[in-house]
Computed example of a mutant assay.
Amino acid sequence: MQVKDKVVIVTGAGSGIGRATALHFAHFGAKVVVSDIDLEKAQKVADEIVTNFGESLPIKANVAQYEEVENLIQHTVTAFGRLDVMVNNAGIGPKQLLKTAEHTLEDWEAVIAVNQTGVFYGMKLALQQMLKQGSGNIVNVASLAGLKASINNLSYSASKFAVVGMTKSAALEYAKTGIRINAVCPGYTESALLDKLLSARPDMDTMLKSIIPMKRYGDAKEIADAIVWLASDQTKFMTGQTLILDGGTSL
């Protein structure tokens, strides 16, 4: 992967896909800012990178707060002089899986704030820095739920459909500036979100695997591999795309 010495921010990097992505970038020589709402988790990932690969910096940020995302970008540029790659990965699911009429306002507001508005903040502020540089790369983590209907999960589905749309719109706007913007759409992947779902509904494990043609969940490292590839110089003619990684579920 051609990402050596690139300065990369990964949000939600304290666990799951974010952690795997941060480690994967570092493995290929990138300088990684590990951002998470939980600074202790971010610190552990950054320490792992420093011990095994190279440079890393942990920064606490709640992506639903504009000022915290602004600080994240500014701190990164102060430390490393630039921002080459922004991975908007931080995301949450609703506390309760309910049909639309019963969907709680609390879940709607929280999920949209992180998954949709948080990605907007990350894109907006990263783009401002990348325009100054004349180059950059953004990878947004959407979901299969942003491409297909997802019952009892309206806020999550709405937010991920929005991420796909924002990716395409912004990619078109900035294609001629040297900035590329793409998204990945994971299917059911081993992560904190899936663990939460299965702990609430253990019976869903067999059901979910039955609808995945590969009969297994995705591994966070497999999603990370796609994210790093999209951010690398090996995909210079690729922008506005949504890469589906779902074990064939969408088929």
Rank of each mutant, 00 (worst) to 15 (best):
F161L: 09
V50H: 09
I138Q: 00
T239W: 04
A79R: 14
D219N: 13
N182E: 07
G93E: 12
S250L: 08
H27G: 04
A113D: 12
K99A: 13
S56W: 02
D219G: 08
E173I: 13
S56A: 15
S150R: 03
G240M: 10
N137L: 04
V69K: 03
G136Q: 07
V139Y: 00
K4A: 14
G118A: 10
L144I: 13
K160D: 08
N115M: 10
E106D: 15
A224L: 06
V77H: 04
G12D: 03
K196H: 14
N140M: 07
K31L: 01
M123P: 01
G91H: 03
L245D: 11
I179N: 01
G118R: 03
V7C: 04
K148E: 10
Q96A: 13
S250M: 12
G146C: 04
A200L: 15
S210T: 08
M1W: 00
G136W: 03
T167S: 08
L125C: 02
I92L: 10
S135I: 05
C185S: 12
I244T: 14
L127S: 04
T235G: 07
V111H: 10
E102H: 12
L172D: 04
D219Q: 15
A158L: 11
L144C: 08
G248L: 10
T235Y: 09
Y66F: 11
N137F: 03
I92A: 05
A30G: 10
H24V: 06
F25I: 07
K95D: 13
S210E: 11
D107P: 04
W108V: 06
K209Y: 01
L251H: 13
G18D: 11
E48M: 07
E40R: 12
N153H: 14
Y174D: 04
T51K: 15
A142P: 04
D219F: 14
G122P: 05
F161A: 07
A101Q: 12
S143I: 02
Q128G: 15
L125D: 06
A30D: 05
S199W: 01
G81F: 06
R201C: 03
A158V: 15
A26L: 08
F25V: 05
V228P: 08
S143T: 06
K215T: 08
I9E: 03
T11F: 02
L194Q: 05
A226V: 13
V164Y: 07
G16R: 07
K196N: 14
G12P: 01
I138P: 02
D47C: 05
Q133E: 14
M130N: 03
S169C: 12
V77G: 04
F237L: 13
T21A: 08
A224V: 06
E106R: 05
I73E: 10
V141H: 01
G16M: 04
M207A: 15
E48V: 00
Y217Q: 04
V10S: 09
I212A: 04
S157Y: 02
R82A: 12
G118Y: 08
Q96T: 10
Q116I: 01
V111G: 06
V139I: 14
